[in-house]
Amino acid sequence: MAKAKAGDFDWQNLGFEYYDLPYSYHAEFKDGKWQEGKLTENSTIQMSEAANVLHYGQEAFEGLKAYRRKDGGVNLFRPDQNAKRLENSAKRLLMEPFPINKFISAVKEVVRANQDFVPPYGSGATLYIRPFMIGTGKVIGVHPADEFQFHILVTPVGPYYKGGLKPTAYVTSPYDRAAHGGTGQSKVSGNYASSLLPGSIAQKNGYSDVVYLDPRLHENIEELGGANFFGITKDGKFKTPKSPSILPSITKKSLLKIADDFGMEPEETTISINDLDQFSEAGAMGTAAVISPVGSITHNGNKHVFYSETTAGPYTQKLYDRLSKIQNGDEKGPDGWQVDVPLN
C-alpha cells in the first residue's frame, strides 16, 4: 500500500477506515526492559510464527483522537486516561505495561510527525490514534510471552456512525460480549473478536448494532456494540450501566462530569432491559462514536422508541455540544482534559 498524502483526502466526506500515513511509532520490550522507542516509516510488524499474540491473543489496545483547533493547533483529549487504561489492560494479560509518561510523549510525537493529516477545524473529521501492545515472545504452551511490541498507528477518520448526530436502531443480542469475571473491563482484542458475529447479524437485519446484556442473567444492559450506553430519564437525570464486565470508557467518565455540571444527577447503576420506559432519550458514547443517539432498542421482538428515530433529543444534543467544544478547543474543559501537541 502506498503512503497516503494529505492532498488525497476529502476531509468533509471521510469514512472510518485505515490509511497508511508516513509515520508510526514503535518500541520493543526484551531482555527484561522496554527499549527506546522511535518513529518509523515501516507500517508492517515482524514476528515469529510462534508469537503469543497469534495463538493465545495476548494483545491490548487503545483509541484516542487528535483534534484541530480553530487557531490551527492540535489537541489531544485526556491521553493520560488512555495510558492508564492500557496499563490496566496489559496487567490483566500479564504484559509489561508501557510507561504512562512515555505513552503520552509517543502519542504527541507521532501526531506531530503526521500533523498534515490532522483534518481541518470544522470538517467533522479527526486524526484517530491506535496504540497497541502485542506479545511477540515465542510460545507453544499456554503461558505469557516474555517479549512485547508497542506500536502506534494514526489515520484520519470521519464519523464512526454515518449521518452524524442521527439516531440509529439497536437490537439486544443472545450472545455475550464478555464473561462475568473475564476481560470485559479490559480493552483486549478477544472481546472484539467475539462481537463480530452478533454485530454482523444485527446489521444484516437492519440495525446499527447490538445491545449486550449481562452475561449471568441476560436482564441488565451492559454495553452497546463498540460503545457504552447512557439513558436520560424523563426528569432529566443521566444514567449509565454499572458492571465489572463493562469497559471503563473515557468518554463516559467525561460525560458523567459534564452531566453533573449540568445538574443532571449522573449515576452509574444497574439498568434492566425491561425498564426502558424510564428514559426519554438514550445514546451510545465512546472515543469512536463520541455521542450517537439511540433511536430505538428492540428486545424479544418488542421495539422501544426513545425521543425520536430521526432527531437527537435536547439533552443528548446539549451533552454532545459541550463535549465536542472541549475536544475541539472551543471551550475550556477541566484541568488535564485538553493537551496541546507542540507542532513544528
Rank of each mutant, 00 (worst) to 15 (best):
D260Q: 12
A227C: 06
Q317H: 10
P22G: 01
F150E: 06
K242W: 01
V154C: 11
A227Y: 00
G181H: 07
H55M: 06
G226K: 12
Y128C: 09
S243I: 01
K187D: 08
G63Y: 13
V305T: 11
E96M: 13
A312N: 06
I100E: 14
I232A: 04
G206W: 10
K70V: 11
K239M: 15
E109S: 15
R130G: 02
I271G: 00
D116H: 09
F103N: 00
H151A: 01
K187G: 10
G184N: 05
K5P: 08
Q149W: 04
G336V: 10
E59K: 06
G57Q: 12
T240S: 15
L224Y: 02
R322H: 15
F29W: 11
K38D: 08
Q278I: 13
I291H: 13
R69D: 05
K65E: 08
L153K: 02
T316Y: 09
S243C: 07
F238Y: 12
A178Y: 03
A83K: 03
L319G: 10
D209V: 00
E17W: 01
A145D: 02
E36F: 03
I152F: 12
P167E: 01
T136M: 09
S200K: 14
G283M: 05
M285P: 02
S89Y: 09
I273V: 12
V339L: 04
I246D: 05
Y160F: 15
A282N: 03
V339W: 04
Q278A: 11
T287V: 12
K91F: 14
F306K: 00
